[in-house]
Amino acid sequence: MSEHKNDIIKYCAYSLLLLAVFILQSARGTSPSLWGLQLDVIPFFVVTIALFEGPYGAGSLGFAAGLLCTVGSPVPDGVLALYYGVLGTLCGMFALRYMRRVLPSALLLGLLATVVKGVAGYLFYYALFYNAPAGRAALLLLGDCAVSLAPAALVFFAVRAIYLRFAEKDEA
C-alpha cells in the first residue's frame, strides 16, 4: 500500500517536472532561440523516463507529454501523444535489456528520438506540401539536436534525482 502510494507521488513528481520543463521551454522570455534553432528536451525527458521506469511508465508519461506539447503547436492533436507514447514504450523495452541508466544512454536515445521526429515531420509534411529544401532541413535538425543536449543533461539529472529519492524510500 505504501509502495503504491510512493509510486503515485513519484509519478506526480515526474508530471510536475514535465510541466516545468515544457513551460520553461515554450514561454516567451525563457524559450531560447539561437540562430533560428529551437530547443526541444521533451524527447530526452521521455527516453530518460524509459531508462529509469521501463516501458509502461515511459509510455504513459510520453502520452501525457505528447498531449501537453500540442498546446501552442501546429501539429494536430493526438499525433505527438501517439509518437511519444509509442516512443516511450519501445525505448523502455529496449533500455531494460540493452542499456544502462547513464547520461550517454539518455542522450543517445534522445537524439535518435529527435531525429526520427524531425525526419517524419519533414517527409510527411514540409517536403510533401511545401517542398522544403532537404539541406536546410538537415542543418536545422542537427542544430536543434545540438542546442538541446545541455538542457537534456539537466533533465536527466532531475529525473534521476526523483527516481533515486523514491528508490531510497522504497528500500527504507
Binding site: 515554450s26 514561454a27 516567451r28 524559450s31 532561440s33 533560428g36 534553432l37 529551437q38 526541444d40 506539447c69 498546446v71 501552442g72 503547436s73 501546429p74 501539429v75 515531420g121 514540409y126 511545401y130 522544403a132 536545422l140 536543434d144
Partner: peptide
Amino acid sequence: SIVSATEGSYRSGFT
C-alpha cells in the same frame, strides 16, 4: 499578451 512561441523551426506563430 503573448505567452509563448509556436514550436518548430518551420513555423511562425505564438500563443
